[in-house]
Amino acid sequence: MAKILPLHDMLRDNCQKHGIVHEFLSIDGSMIPYHGHHSAKQFIRNKPVGFGYKMWMMCSADGYPYNFSIYCGKDENRKLPLGSQVVMDMLQPVVNKDSHVIFFDNFFTSYALMVDLTKQDFRARGTIRENRTEKCHLLPKKEIEKKERFL
Rank of each mutant, 00 (worst) to 15 (best):
P33F: 01
Q92H: 10
Y64C: 12
K54D: 04
K135W: 02
A124K: 01
I128A: 00
R78F: 03
H35Y: 11
R149G: 04
E145F: 00
R132I: 04
M55E: 08
G36C: 10
Y111G: 00
S39H: 05
I128W: 01
H35V: 04
A112Y: 08
I4M: 13
A61T: 11
G73P: 14
L139F: 02
L113H: 06
C59A: 15
D9H: 14
K146F: 00
A124L: 02
G36N: 10
K119F: 01
M57A: 05
K119Y: 01
E130I: 04
D121E: 12
A40H: 13
R78A: 13
F122T: 04
A124R: 02
K17Q: 15
N14D: 15
I102G: 05
L113Q: 06
M57I: 07
F108N: 01
M31H: 04
H8K: 01
V94E: 12
L5Y: 07
V87S: 12
K97Q: 14
D116S: 15
T127V: 01
D75K: 13
K47R: 13
S26D: 02
T133D: 01
T118W: 08
R125H: 05
K47W: 09
M114V: 06
E134I: 04
S110Q: 07
A124S: 10
N77H: 11
M55W: 11
I128Y: 01
H137N: 09
S39P: 07
S69Y: 12
C15H: 15
Q92C: 09
D28A: 02
